[in-house]
Simulated assay, not measured.
Amino acid sequence: MSKQRILSIEYIRGLSMLGVIGIHTGAYSLANPDVNVHLFALLEICTRFSVPIFFFVSAFGLFLHHNLEAPFNYFNFMKRRCRTVLIPYIVWSLLYMIHYTWVSGDISPWFPGILVKYLLFGLASYQLYFLVILLWFYSFMPLWRMIVKGIAKAPGFYLTVLLLLQIAVNYYSSYILEANFANRYINMAIQYRLSYWVIHYIFIFLLGAICALHYQQFIHKLRKYRIAITCFFGVTLLGMTGYYYHLLFTKHYSPEEAVNTVHQLSPIGVLYTLATTLFLLVLFESYRLNPVIKATLTQLGERSYAVYLVHPFVMYYLIGFINSKNIIMSVPVVLAFYVFTAAISLAISWLIHFSSRSRPSIGLLLTGSAAKK
């Protein structure tokens, strides 16, 4: 696997991290009753590929050098994943809960029943659910190995079938399924399904696996059809934004209601995620990037894990400062909020990285790895 191909995945990871910060910035922009709906669309609609594409990147990393025919040691595999994901997940969950109790005085999250629920569903902070789903994906690795073996025999056909099934399942989960069963535990499991149901992201995960196993052939196909892929991306982006504006101006939805309808699990959202994934691969594999953009995406890609984990802390104190000064979340303020969040989070991620050189336990606890001296 060439360095350039690996860098392409790194660029996607970095761009997706910017998208995640955009989504969370959009939520804070709603503090302004007269929110700019066009900026909100940029932050909340155009970035909706960000979380699903992380599962593509995760599967790509898992299967990049994975031999499906070699014996698979499940214990060693899970041991490594627990170190890189489970330990940081628990540590950051506890940090966010300690912080919440410190600023609010509320100790209820520490009650045993509530604590278990928080850790099971990633409720300590709004971004941590991703790690819960990722751990579930890891736990089913033997199943993914078998499925990928089958898909590899006719990837075009099987991936198309999976895509259609994914759209149907996500539609049912998003717009039909309700937690109204007699058993409260079943209701809880359904209520928090977005926090741990891997079924919502199986297609994009398996696409990442197939892409990693047959990368050269995959990229060759993408380059061959790059015009069609670019058009596909444009059509799905237009579909996402067009549906959003339709809900706003025709159905008279609020911006928050609209984005809760036009999300990554909606039918157009699934297609948009696929189109963006293919488009970014074509873009990064076929064209030479500006050195500044290349360096920025590389840094964000390398530090994306720590940035993802820490940025809600940064946002909390930035919004606290803005509120203390009675500053309205106007367009310039929202953009500044976004830039400062990304910059400060990146700086903290570097601090964690360099600190782990002298104290490896810092890196192991916070990011699952320690920097080499």
Rank of each mutant, 00 (worst) to 15 (best):
S324C: 03
V169P: 03
V35D: 01
T84E: 05
F75Y: 13
V148Q: 04
L297D: 03
G363K: 08
V292S: 13
F121W: 10
L281Q: 11
S125K: 08
I151K: 07
A31I: 06
Y126M: 09
L364Y: 14
N76W: 08
Y11N: 11
T47R: 04
F205D: 04
Y253W: 07
N290Q: 06
R80K: 15
P332R: 08
V57P: 00
Y245K: 01
K153Q: 14
F284K: 05
S369F: 07
V37K: 11
R359D: 01
Y196F: 13
L163S: 01
M17K: 01
F218D: 01
G122F: 03
T236C: 14
M188F: 05
Y192M: 01
I186R: 02
L42M: 11
F284D: 06
H252C: 01
A27M: 09
V20I: 14
P155E: 03
Y201T: 11
I190D: 13
V57E: 06
R288L: 13
I348L: 15
Y243R: 11
I202Y: 04
V20F: 08
A209Q: 08
A27Q: 10
Y317H: 13
Y225W: 14
N170L: 05
G208T: 12
L297G: 01
R5S: 04
I147P: 06
R226F: 07
G14E: 08
Y243Q: 12
E178N: 15
F77P: 11
W110I: 10
T276Q: 00
I348E: 01
G61Q: 08
V314G: 02
V259F: 04
F130T: 05
R288W: 01
L39D: 02
S2H: 11
W136Q: 10
L274Y: 04
Y316I: 09
N290P: 01
L289F: 09
S345C: 07
V292N: 10
G363S: 05
L128C: 07
Y118Q: 07
F337A: 06
V85G: 06
G156Q: 11
R193C: 03
F111I: 05
I21G: 00
N187K: 11
I322Y: 08
C46D: 05
G301E: 02
L15I: 12
F321K: 02
I327T: 13
A258P: 07
Q166P: 00
S361M: 12
H353A: 14
F130M: 11
I176H: 12
S173L: 15
I23P: 02
L365I: 01
L281E: 06
Y316C: 06
G14V: 12
I12Y: 00
I45S: 05
T261I: 05
Y196R: 00
T101F: 09
L222N: 12
N73D: 15
N170Q: 03
I45L: 07
F203R: 02
H99E: 15
S58N: 12
L271R: 07
W197P: 00
R303C: 03
F77I: 05
Y201F: 14
M17W: 06
G61M: 12
A371C: 13
K373C: 10
V310Y: 02
V35I: 15
C211I: 04
T230C: 14
G234H: 07
W144S: 11
